[in-house]
Amino acid sequence: TAPAASANAMVGLTPPASALAAADAPAPIGGCRNDGYTEMSRFWELEAGTDCGTFSFRGYRPLSVSFAVGDKVNRQPSSLNPVNSATTETDYQKQEMRIQLSVRTKLAQNLLTDPNGKLRDSLWIGYTGLSYWQVFNSDLSRPFRTTDHQPEIFYVYPTTAQLPFGWRWRYSGIGLEHQSNGQSDPLSRSWNRTYLMTGFELDNRLQLQAKIWHRINESAEDDNNPNIQNYIGRSELKLGWNVNQRNWMGVTARGSLNGHGKGSGRVEWMHTLGDGWMGGKSNLRLHAQVFHGYGDSLIDYNYKRTVFSLGFSLLDF
């Protein structure tokens, strides 16, 4: 009977056992979910094997809900523009909820790269909303203390340059963003900036990303937050470390290149919770972070404070 079974398999009547086993096995996750590529390549869809197509929603910055407590809270926001300085205090509490929503979609790809090649460039639009909610402040009817809106458009170009000590230069990009809090005077805050960014990685363990920006000037009477770049800074450097399969740590520093800026620092830790679909890595994280400096929110652009937050974040989806 063995020769007959073999003959049947050859003419397609009875599939061989290996084919049946392959058919029962789960299909590998591809595109921007393909674990065969590094996190940086999958996040920016830098290679053909990480492409998830255009006009599909993906996560951008973490989607977070966390409890936050500061060493102090800005009860009377001020600005160098007198029109944008509050005249009375509001009895905000130091304890509040921090909520961040962030999404993006790819508009186009292969604008400058070869469609048949290995690498992919891409054009994206994104939106990030950050709110501080006085949910524990029943005396004020639990208001949102501030909500920042940050739409942007950016272009990413892939690179493959090998650097010393095993590092690789993975991408460069350029972008334009607007940030505002949607308030009326005296609490209105807004600015526009262009930026350049780049990223490097060491295997799938370390990531180094840098960004430098330039504020688009406004007239003095329209400027809600003069010299904001001296407080928030003109550049950002972020180092991420995949400690192991479950834990990630990151350090972000912002500063001014002319030596006159105030800047800030942020230290983060994320721990993976549960398992993802089809045995992959879950995108849900226990997320703890400490921020110190200026500009944790736009209303606090010139207000220095330290904030600790602990909650849950959903990464790229």
Rank of each mutant, 00 (worst) to 15 (best):
Q289M: 09
G263R: 00
N242G: 08
N242P: 06
L273P: 04
I232F: 06
T272F: 00
N247F: 08
A253N: 03
N242H: 02
W241A: 01
G259I: 13
S256K: 13
V267Q: 01
D275Q: 15
I232E: 07
V243H: 05
E268A: 04
N247K: 08
R234C: 02
M270H: 03
L286G: 13
R254P: 08
G280N: 11
W248Q: 15
I232T: 06
M270F: 12
T272Y: 11
I232W: 09
D223R: 06
D223L: 09
L237D: 01
W277F: 15
E221N: 14
G276H: 13
G250L: 03
N227C: 02
R266W: 05
G280Q: 11
G276P: 05
N242M: 07
M278K: 10
R285V: 02
P226Q: 10
N258R: 02
G279A: 04
Q229L: 13
H260S: 13
D275Y: 15
W241Y: 03
G279P: 04
L286K: 00
G279C: 04
G263S: 04
G263V: 11
N230P: 13
P226F: 06
G279W: 10
V267K: 01
G265F: 03
N247M: 09
H271A: 13
Q229P: 12
V251F: 07
V290Q: 12
G274T: 02
H287P: 11
D223A: 11
Q229K: 13
D275E: 15
Q229F: 11
V251M: 09
D222Y: 04
S282G: 11
V290Y: 07
G279Q: 09
N224D: 14
L286C: 01
M270D: 10
N283T: 07
G261Y: 00
N242L: 01
R246G: 08
S235R: 07
E221H: 14
N227Y: 10
W269N: 09
L273E: 06
G261A: 13
G255C: 04
T272C: 08
G255T: 15
V290L: 13
N224T: 15
W277G: 14
E221D: 15
R234H: 12
W277N: 07
V290I: 14
Q245G: 12
R266P: 08
G263D: 06
G250D: 09
W241R: 00
L284M: 09
L257P: 08
G250Y: 08
G263K: 05
I228W: 03
M270G: 12
N258H: 00
N258I: 06
G255A: 06
N224R: 12
N258G: 06
V251W: 01
Y231T: 02
G276K: 06
S264E: 07
M278S: 15
V243S: 00
S256H: 14
R246N: 14
